[in-house]
C-alpha cells in the first residue's frame, strides 16, 4: 500500500458517521449546560415579575417609586421604596469612596511598583480577603469598626450607616484591585518604555500612560465592585441595621433593599400577604439596578476597547 493511499484513508475516516454522532452529543451536552444558566436567569426574572404583579395590584407604582415612607408591617402601612433605595445608595457611594481610591492605588502598586516577591504575598492575601464570608465582615463591623467610630462620635448607634459603608468598602477593595491590576498588567511594556524614554518618572508612567491605557478594564472593575456593593446583604444588615429612613446622618441606622429582604425572609409574614409580595417588588428593583450597572460595564468595555494590542 502506498503512503498516498494511507493518507486518503486517514482523511476520509471509516468511522465518519460515528464521529459525527459523537460531536453532536458533545455539542448538545455543552449546549445544555449553557442553557441551564440562561433558563435560571429567565426563571428568576419570571418569579420576580410574577410576584410583583400581585404587589402592584394593591400599591400603585407611583406611590412605590415616589413614596418616602417605608412601613410594610406596622400600620398604617406605607410602601414608598425611596428610603430603601437611599440606604442602598449610601452604602454603595460610601463604599465606592473607600474602595475605588484604595483599590486603584493597590492595583497601581502591584502592577507598577511592587517587587515580584512582594506581589507574590499581596495578591493571594487579597484573594483570601475576597473569599471571607460576608457575615464575618458584618461581625467585624459590629465588633471593631463601630466601636472605633463610637470613640470619635459617642452618639453613634450600634447599627449605623457609616460602619456598613466602611465594611462594604473594605470587602470590595480586592475586587477593584485585582481586576484593575489585571487590566494594568496587560498594558504592553512598549508603552512604558516609550514614556520612560521620554524622561517620564515612574509615577508619570503609571498615572498618565498605564492607567489611561487600562481605563476600560479599570472602570469595569469599579462597576462590578459597585454592583457587588448594591447587592451586598449580610454585612450591611448586621452593620447598618434595619431602620428604613432617608437621612444624611451616617451615624444613624438605615436599611438597604437587601437588608429589608432579609428581614421579611426571616420574619413570619404569611405567604401571599402584601408584606410577602413586597419582597418581590424590592427584589425586582434590586435586580434592575444591578442589571443596569452590568450593562453599563459592558457598554464601557466595548466603547473603550483596549486598542493597543
Amino acid at each position: 500500500m502506498s503512503s498516498a493511499d494511507e493518507t486518503a484513508v486517514a482523511i476520509t475516516g471509516e468511522s465518519g458517521p460515528m464521529n459525527g454522532l459523537k460531536e453532536t452529543a458533545i455539542r448538545s451536552v455543552f449546549f445544555s449546560c449553557a442553557l441551564v444558566t440562561v433558563l435560571t436567569t429567565l426563571g428568576i426574572i419570571l418569579v420576580l415579575v410574577q410576584g410583583s404583579i400581585g404587589f402592584f395590584q394593591e400599591v400603585s407604582i407611583v406611590e412605590y417609586v415616589t413614596g418616602t415612607d417605608w412601613s410594610p408591617v406596622i400600620r398604617p402601612r406605607s410602601f414608598g421604596v425611596l428610603p430603601l433605595i437611599w440606604g442602598t445608595l449610601i452604602i454603595t457611594v460610601g463604599s465606592a469612596l473607600i474602595a475605588i481610591p484604595v483599590g486603584t492605588a493597590t492595583a497601581i502598586y502591584l502592577s507598577e511598583y511592587a517587587d515580584p516577591q512582594v506581589r507574590k504575598v499581596i495578591k493571594p492575601t487579597l484573594e483570601i480577603l475576597a473569599g471571607i464570608p460576608t457575615i464575618v465582615y458584618g461581625f467585624f463591623a459590629l465588633s471593631f469598626i463601630t466601636p472605633i467610630i463610637q470613640r470619635f462620635f459617642p452618639e453613634t448607634g450600634t447599627f449605623n450607616a457609616a460602619a456598613g459603608a466602611i465594611v462594604v468598602g473594605i470587602m470590595i477593595i480586592p475586587m477593584v484591585s485585582s481586576l484593575s491590576e489585571d487590566a494594568m498588567s496587560s498594558v504592553p511594556d512598549d508603552l512604558r518604555n516609550a514614556a520612560y524614554g521620554l524622561g517620564a518618572t515612574k509615577f508619570e508612567v503609571s498615572t498618565s500612560v498605564v492607567f489611561p491605557a487600562s481605563l476600560s478594564g479599570v472602570i469595569a472593575s469599579y462597576i462590578l465592585a459597585l454592583s457587588r456593593a448594591i447587592g451586598e446583604t449580610m454585612a450591611v444588615t448586621l452593620a447598618a441595621g434595619m431602620h428604613p429612613q432617608i437621612t444624611g446622618n451616617l451615624l444613624e441606622p438605615i436599611q438597604t433593599m437587601t437588608a429589608y429582604m432579609v428581614q421579611i425572609g426571616i420574619s413570619d409574614v404569611s405567604v401571599g400577604s402584601i408584606g410577602y409580595q413586597s419582597l418581590f417588588a424590592v427584589g425586582l428593583t434590586l435586580f434592575a439596578m444591578t442589571l443596569a450597572m452590568n450593562l453599563f460595564s459592558l457598554w464601557i468595555k466595548s466603547r473603550y476597547r483596549e486598542e493597543y494590542q
Partner: peptide
Amino acid sequence: RRKIGMVFQKPNPFPKSIYDNVAYGLRVQ
C-alpha cells in the same frame, strides 16, 4: 533620558490622540 530621546523598533504610540502623543514628552518635561 530627557536629553537623549529614543525611538523603538516596533512603533509604540500611546493610545492617545496624535497631538497628545507628540505633546507627552513636552508635558512630562
